[in-house]
């Protein structure tokens, strides 16, 4: 199955139907969200619904669809995609399912790491967000290799949230700040929304559109800070059924509502970034980024 996966989003034209092109033209005539986040829900229900032999097959189908969707996003002009792959809460599932998901992730990361030339051509940067201490040494090693290999690529960015919850993300950000204060690198009066955003896994990048599949209407502890005023779109279809039309509908909804959301954003004024602030916090940010790299074995 994995050989069929699209590991290079720029190759997606292979997966385009003839009618995708006019639909894409209609969609791209409006404003395209720069950053889209997905809660990929419904793999298990899809396995049950379609009588697949195991839940694991449902996750594999979801994985196949994920690469297709990444390609469509790239083709439409979305620069950054964040995918909720595995929540810390998902460790509560059966050992069989958790192990299956870990093995699937390992296979995907290994495949991505091995395709150095294709990755070089695609110029897509890959990042993995989450609590790295919860991952196996092998998985951490792969994450580190993938991130190192693609860190200078700038045509797009794909972020996998693995062993992730938003509260854990915010908690870790607060802890970095506390350590910064303890080390004398930050003054308490320098703590603001910008600094917290910068200390999160997403490092200041916030989605414009959050899509959740499978008809569930909750955020499941995903990017709570980052999505506090973005467009939240709930889709009835299960993740492996989420197709090009579903994606276009979500973007159309974003285009129809962006003005209303912008009006509310103006009310919720956040202190904006200024270069002096960056200079004052430079030492802290450099220290934090180095420590984060060390934690994910980014330093060779």
């Amino acid at each position: 199955m994995l050989d069929e996966l699209f590991t290079d989003p720029t190759e997606i034209r292979k997966g385009f139907e003839w009618w995708h092109i006019p639909l894409q033209k209609i969609i791209t005539s409006g404003q395209i969200p720069r950053h889209v986040a997905f809660i990929m829900d419904g793999n298990r229900r899809f396995a049950r619904k379609t009588d697949l032999e195991s839940i694991q097959r449902g996750h594999e189908k979801g994985c196949e669809q994920m690469f297709k969707i990444l390609g469509w996003c790239h083709e439409i002009g979305i620069k950054e995609v964040t995918l909720y792959s595995f929540s810390i809460e998902n460790f509560k599932r059966s050992n069989e399912e958790v192990n299956g998901l870990m093995q699937l992730t390992e296979k995907i990361l290994t495949k991505l790491v091995k395709q150095k030339e294709r990755m070089e051509t695609a110029q897509i940067r890959y990042r993995v967000y989450g609590n790295m201490t919860m991952l196996s040494p092998n998985l951490r090693e792969l994450v580190g290799r993938l991130q190192r290999m693609t860190k200078h690529y700038a045509k797009g960015q794909v972020n996998f949230c693995f062993a992730y919850t938003a509260q854990d993300d915010m908690n870790r950000a607060f802890e970095w700040i506390r350590k910064g204060v303890e080390k004398g690198l930050i003054q308490k009066n320098q703590i603001d929304e910008w600094l917290i955003s910068r200390c999160l896994d997403t490092a200041g990048s916030e989605p414009d559109l959050l899509i959740r599949t499978s008809g569930e209407l909750r955020l499941s502890d995903f990017l709570l800070w980052q999505c506090s005023n973005c467009h939240v779109y709930f889709d009835e279809d299960l993740w492996p059924e989420f197709n090009f039309v579903n994606l276009c509908k979500a973007i159309l909804s974003y285009q129809m509502n962006i003005a209303k959301i912008d009006r509310i954003s103006k009310v919720l004024i956040c202190k904006s970034y200024d270069s002096k602030m960056f200079e004052d916090l430079k030492e802290f940010l450099e220290w934090m980024d180095e420590e984060k790299k060390r934690q994910t074995e980014l330093i060779e």
């Binding site: 955020l219 506090s228 939240v232 779109y233």
Partner: peptide, 13 residues
């Protein structure tokens, strides 16, 4: 408005 309009984010787990 299909947004959470800045509702306290921590609590919407």
């Amino acid at each position: 408005v299909p947004s959470l309009c800045g509702y306290p984010p921590w609590s919407l787990r």
